[in-house]
Computed example of a mutant assay.
Amino acid sequence: MYFLLNILGIIVVLGLVYLCSPSKKEIRWRPIVSILIVEFIVTAFMLGTNIGAWVINKIADFFLWLIECANAGIAFVIPSFFANESLDFLVSALLPIIFVVTFFDILTYFGILTWLINKVGWVISKISGLPKLESFYSIQMMFLGNTEALAVIRDQLAVLKDKRLLTVGIMSMSCISGSIIGAYLTMLPAEYVFSAIPLNCLNALLIVSLLNPMTVTKEEDIIYTPPKSEKKDFFSTISNSMMVGMNMVIVIAAMLIGYVALTAAVNGILGVFVSGLTIQKIFGVIFSPFALLLGLPMQEAMYVAELMGTKLATNEFVAMVNLKDQLQTLSPHTVAVAATFLTSFANFSTIGMIYGSYNSLLSEEKSAIIGKNVWKLLVSGIAVSLLSAAIVGLFVW
Rank of each mutant, 00 (worst) to 15 (best):
N315E: 06
L327D: 03
E39D: 15
E68C: 09
G145S: 06
I59N: 04
Q326Y: 06
V13S: 02
V392P: 03
T147W: 05
K25L: 08
Y2F: 11
V260K: 15
V249H: 07
C201D: 06
F136M: 13
L342K: 07
P213M: 00
M320P: 01
I74N: 10
K25E: 12
L94T: 13
L144W: 04
L294D: 00
M187T: 10
G121E: 03
A313E: 02
I112C: 11
Q156L: 02
G15Y: 05
I37W: 08
L386E: 01
V120G: 07
G393P: 07
K132F: 05
L36Y: 05
K126A: 11
F235I: 13
D162W: 01
M141S: 14
P289V: 09
M308D: 06
I223N: 12
F103C: 12
V77F: 13
T340P: 02
I391R: 04
E191Y: 10
W122P: 00
F3V: 07
E230I: 14
A44W: 11
F234S: 09
P297C: 07
M46W: 10
S344A: 10
A301V: 00
P22A: 03
Q299I: 14
V335T: 14
K126H: 12
V38S: 12
V159F: 01
G48H: 12
L323Q: 05
L312C: 04
M1Q: 12
E26A: 14
L277H: 04
G121F: 02
L292K: 09
I78R: 11
A339C: 13
F194A: 07
A93L: 04
L342E: 00
L206H: 09
S275E: 15
V274W: 06
T334W: 05
H333Y: 04
T215L: 13
T147A: 12
A44E: 07
S388D: 03
I252E: 04
A338I: 05
A53C: 01
E365G: 00
T314W: 00
G129N: 10
E220C: 03
K163G: 02
V321M: 14
V100S: 14
A264D: 14
S209C: 08
S177A: 15
A196D: 10
V100C: 11
S92H: 04
S86T: 15
Y355K: 12
I35A: 09
F110A: 02
I170W: 01
K161Q: 14
E148S: 10
A346T: 12
L378P: 00
V274R: 02
L292V: 10
K366S: 12
I51K: 00
K119H: 05
F136Y: 15
N84F: 06
Y2W: 07
K372F: 02
S385E: 06
Q280C: 06
N57A: 15
L185I: 04
S349K: 13
N247M: 10
P31M: 02
L307G: 02
N71R: 11
S195E: 09
N240I: 01
E220S: 11
I223S: 09
V168K: 06
T278V: 01
L157N: 09
F341V: 03
I180D: 01
T278Q: 05
M302V: 13
F348A: 00
I351W: 04
G111Q: 01
Q280Y: 03
W54D: 09
D61G: 08
L387S: 08
L116P: 02
A313V: 13
C175S: 15
A53W: 10
N118R: 14
S241H: 06
N240Q: 14
